[in-house]
Simulated assay, not measured.
Amino acid sequence: MDVFADLPFDRNGDPVFGAPWEARVFAMTVKAHEAGVFSWREWTDALGAELANDGENAGYYDHWLAAFETLLTAKGVAAGGQLAALRDAWEEAAHATPHGQPIELDKGLI
C-alpha cells in the first residue's frame, strides 16, 4: 500500500494542504518528533495503522490527525479526554465565529 498515493504535492514536490488545519497538524507532528516525543518509526507505524483502518473513508489528514492524537495519548503528553474536549471546543468556536474572522477558544481551555 502506497501511503503517499493521495498526498498532494505542488510542481516543486512540496506538500499542498487542502485546509490550514492540515498544515498545522503536519507541522505539529514534525515539531513533536524533533522534540523527541516519538521516533519517526513510531510515527510511521501509527500513521500506517490508522490508514489501514479506513472504515470511515476519511481523508488523508483526518488519518494523520488521528495518528498524532493516538501517539500523544500513548506517550502521556495529553489524555484522550483532554484532546476530545479541545476538539469539541474548537468545533464549537468554529461554528460560532463569523466567516473570515479568527477562531478563538475560551481562554480557560488552553
Rank of each mutant, 00 (worst) to 15 (best):
D2F: 03
D2T: 04
V3E: 03
V3P: 15
V3H: 08
A5L: 08
A5P: 00
A5Q: 06
L7K: 05
F9H: 11
F9R: 14
F9A: 06
D10M: 03
D10I: 04
N12L: 13
G13S: 10
G13V: 05
D14E: 13
P15F: 08
P15M: 14
V16Y: 03
F17R: 10
G18K: 12
G18V: 05
A19L: 08
A19Q: 12
A19I: 01
A19F: 04
A19V: 06
P20D: 09
P20S: 12
A23T: 00
A23I: 01
A23D: 04
R24H: 03
R24Q: 07
V25T: 14
V25I: 14
F26R: 12
F26M: 12
A27T: 14
M28F: 11
M28D: 15
T29H: 07
T29Y: 06
V30N: 04
A32C: 10
H33L: 14
H33Y: 12
G36R: 08
F38C: 09
S39V: 03
S39M: 06
W40S: 10
W40N: 11
W40H: 12
R41L: 05
E42P: 07
W43A: 03
W43F: 11
W43C: 02
T44K: 06
T44Y: 09
A46S: 13
A46D: 10
A46Q: 08
A46N: 10
A46G: 09
L47Q: 04
G48Y: 08
G48L: 09
A49S: 11
E50T: 10
E50F: 00
E50P: 01
E50C: 10
E50R: 07
N53A: 15
N53D: 15
D54G: 06
G55S: 00
G55R: 01
E56M: 10
E56N: 13
N57Y: 03
Y60W: 04
Y61A: 01
H63W: 01
H63T: 04
H63Y: 02
W64A: 07
L65F: 02
A66L: 08
A67N: 06
F68W: 12
T70S: 14
L71Q: 04
A74S: 12
A74R: 15
K75V: 04
V77N: 02
A79Y: 07
A79G: 15
G80W: 04
Q82T: 11
Q82H: 05
L83T: 03
L86G: 07
L86H: 11
R87L: 02
R87T: 12
D88K: 07
A89L: 05
W90N: 09
W90K: 12
W90I: 04
H95L: 15
A96C: 01
T97S: 05
T97D: 07
H99T: 09
Q101P: 00
Q101T: 04
P102H: 02
I103H: 02
E104D: 03
L105V: 01
L105S: 08
L105P: 02
D106A: 15
D106R: 13
D106Q: 11
K107P: 00
G108C: 01
L109Q: 09
I110G: 06
